[in-house]
Amino acid sequence: MDTNPLLTLPRLVDRLPGISGPEIVRNLVPPPQFAHATFESYQPDSAYPSQAATVKRLREFSKSQHKARVVGLFAKKIKTPESIPTGVYLDGGFGVGKTHLLAALWHEVPGRKYFGTFIEYTALVGALGYAAASEALTGASLICIDEFELDDPGDTMIMTRLLGALAASGTRIAATSNTPPNALGEGRFAAADFLREIQALASNFETIRIDGTDYRQRGLDGHAVATGEETYQAILGEETEKGLNVTDDSFPELMAHLAKIHPSSFVRLLDGVAVIGLRSVTATDDQTQALRLVAFIDRVYDAQIPIVATGVPLDQVFAGGMLNGGYRKKYLRAMSRMIALTSELA
């Protein structure tokens, strides 16, 4: 008789959440980790002056939005000073605080506003249709887009059209990415065929470069933690005894399960979860599966849920030369986050 106590733990693979268009709109706010992010709580690295300079520029952008709102009370159309761009685009490596600054800007700007990942906005269009999604967002003072990436031509066309319409109506736009706007899509699809659309996107933004090192790596050894089976069971048992909601899944089974769920619903998959257990982690050279894992880890990181894992260290799951391809920056960001998440309970 098998008396393994982990057999009684809930599994993520037993959940099959969905999310509607109206729910996506309601959830377009900064994740819990950045619910109270401010410019004051951001700590610029003195070794990289561009970090402090970015804070200063975003403060100016925020103040201009306050003024624009006042003008809008007495005019049919909000007027924007020529020196202030329609949008700002924070370009920098992972771990330099771009999401923190984006959330701080969101908190600072008055009025109806939205904050979401690129995937959430494209999912909103998919759920509601372009016209209804555009109507839901029109009139917002600010649209914040985290992790801006163009992975296929369809996304390019949708976001070009949507952002162009919102900007024309007076909405300001702020985005973060690891890729400069004029390089979006490189290595992923025939970017040259969509150059006009990509340039149209870039024209909406003032690009602000943020240099720096990954803050998640400070104090860490640079590798994701993989435990043995005995340690795995001990840690999950201890966390369960604290009354926490701990899940236990086979990594291959979870990867197969994620294929059944739209990435915009990954946040619902994690509802109430305090610790994630992953057994038998294996490397993959399947690009579709790898990108799905990146989207999942992004949501786990937003929710700050520790991971305990056995098998291959999670920062070594991207195999087959993936780190040399067009999605390199996405994979590196996920690796950084998995190192941090697996270090919390080690």
Rank of each mutant, 00 (worst) to 15 (best):
T3S: 13
N4W: 07
N4E: 05
L7N: 15
L9Q: 00
R11T: 11
L12M: 05
V13T: 14
D14C: 03
G18K: 02
S20P: 01
V29L: 11
P31F: 07
P32D: 08
Q33L: 14
F34I: 02
A37E: 00
T38F: 02
Y42L: 00
Q43M: 07
A47N: 04
S50P: 01
Q51K: 00
R57A: 12
R57W: 06
L58C: 11
F61L: 08
F61R: 12
S62L: 00
S62A: 15
K63T: 14
Q65R: 15
R69H: 15
K77P: 07
I78L: 13
K79Y: 07
S83E: 14
I84D: 09
T86F: 02
T86N: 13
Y89D: 03
L90S: 11
L90P: 00
G92I: 04
K98L: 00
H100E: 01
L102R: 09
A104C: 08
A104S: 10
W106A: 08
H107G: 04
V109E: 03
P110F: 08
P110W: 04
R112D: 12
K113T: 12
K113S: 10
Y114M: 06
Y114D: 02
G116A: 11
T117Y: 07
F118L: 05
Y121T: 10
A127S: 12
A127N: 12
Y130P: 00
S134A: 14
E135Y: 15
L142Y: 15
I143Q: 07
E147D: 11
F148R: 05
F148I: 01
D152L: 09
P153A: 03
G154P: 02
D155E: 12
T156D: 10
T156P: 04
G164T: 13
G164E: 05
A165W: 03
S169R: 11
T171C: 06
I173D: 06
I173N: 13
A174C: 02
T176C: 08
T176P: 01
S177I: 09
P180Q: 10
P180S: 09
G185Y: 06
E186H: 08
G187H: 04
F189G: 01
A190G: 07
R196M: 13
T213Y: 12
T213G: 11
Y215A: 12
L220N: 10
D221T: 15
H223A: 13
V225Q: 02
G228E: 14
E229N: 15
Y232Q: 02
Q233H: 14
I235M: 00
I235D: 00
I235H: 02
L236T: 03
L236D: 03
L236I: 01
E239W: 04
T247E: 01
D248W: 02
S250E: 10
P252A: 03
A256V: 12
A256Y: 06
A259S: 13
A259E: 15
I261A: 08
S265F: 07
D271G: 01
V275D: 01
I276W: 00
L278E: 03
T282H: 06
A283T: 05
A283R: 06
D285W: 01
D285G: 06
Q287L: 08
T288W: 01
Q289F: 03
I297N: 09
Y301M: 00
P306Q: 07
V308W: 07
V312R: 11
D315V: 09
V317K: 04
M322E: 04
L323Q: 12
L323A: 10
L323S: 08
G325W: 02
K329W: 14
Y331F: 09
S336L: 09
I339F: 01
A340C: 06
A340E: 15
T342R: 07
L345Y: 05
A346T: 10
